[in-house]
Design a protein around this nucleic acid. Structure first.
Length: 195
DNA sequence: CACTAGATGCTCT
DNA sequence: GAGCATCTAGTGA
C-alpha cells in the first residue's frame, strides 16, 4: 500500500514503487510511467545536495509532500518528497498517461497529441495544472492534489537507466520507467556531463 | 523519423 | 553572471 510511511525510505528505493500510481488534481488524473530518484545529500545531481535553500526546503520536510520547482524559464516540475523528515530526497515525476480528465488536459496542453499530454516533467505539470500555489502540499491528506495507490502493481515491469539532462552523476541509473510504455520521455544526456 | 538551436527566467554564487 | 532535473519549432532525409 502506497502511503507516506512507505515513502520514508531512500529515494532510489521509493522511485519504482511510484510507477503505476495515479496523481490527481481535480478532474485530471495521471498514471505515472516514469520517475527519477534524487537522493539529497548523497547525490550531487540533487537540488538539495548543497543543503537547504528557500527553493528546496520542502525536500527536507516529511515524505509524501509535493516539491515543485521552476525550470528553464518556462516549466514547473513536480517531485514527491521521500526519505525521513529532516533528510532531503525526492522523486521527480517525469511522465505519465492521462487517465482521467483528458479534455481538460488537452486544453491546457493546447492541442498536443494525447501521447504527449504528460510525457515530460514540464508537460506533466501543465496537464495537471500544477504550479507554485501547490508547493509543499501533503499528497496523502484531504486536499486538492492527491496520490492514489497503484491499481495493478503485479502487471508492471520496471526498466532502469541514467537520469535525463543531469550534468553530475550522469551515469547513476536512477531513472525508472514502465518497460514498453509509450508514455515515457526520450533519454537525453546533458551536453555538460563528463564523458 | 532524427537531430539541432534558441527561448526564457529563476536560483544560487 | 553562470547554470540549469526542459520544450517546441524548425530543418533535412
Amino acid at each position: 500500500m502506497l502511503d507516506a510511511d512507505l515513502l520514508s525510505g531512500p529515494a532510489e528505493q521509493v522511485a519504482p514503487l511510484l510507477l503505476g500510481a495515479v496523481l490527481r488534481h481535480g478532474e485530471v488524473a495521471v498514471e505515472l510511467t516514469e520517475v527519477e530518484a534524487y537522493a539529497g545529500p548523497r547525490d550531487p545531481a540533487s537540488h538539495a545536495f548543497r543543503g537547504p535553500t528557500p527553493r528546496n526546503e520542502v525536500m527536507f520536510g516529511p515524505p509524501g509532500h509535493l516539491y515543485l520547482y521552476f525550470s528553464y524559464g518556462m516549466h514547473w516540475a513536480a517531485n514527491v518528497v521521500c526519505g525521513p523528515d529532516g533528510t532531503a530526497g525526492g522523486c521527480l515525476l517525469r511522465a505519465g498517461e492521462v487517465v482521467d480528465g483528458v479534455e481538460v488536459a488537452r486544453e491546457r496542453r493546447h492541442g498536443a497529441p494525447d501521447r504527449d499530454l504528460a510525457r515530460g516533467p514540464g508537460r506533466l505539470t501543465q496537464a495537471l495544472g500544477l504550479s507554485q500555489e501547490h508547493r509543499g502540499l501533503d499528497l496523502f491528506a484531504a486536499g486538492p492534489v492527491r496520490l492514489e495507490p497503484v491499481v495493478d502493481a503485479h502487471a508492471l515491469e520496471v526498466a532502469t537507466g541514467p537520469r535525463v539532462g543531469v550534468s553530475q552523476a550522469a551515469d547513476v541509473p536512477w531513472r525508472f520507467w514502465v518497460a514498453g510504455s509509450r508514455y515515457v520521455s526520450a533519454y537525453k544526456r546533458s551536453p555538460r556531463a563528463a564523458p
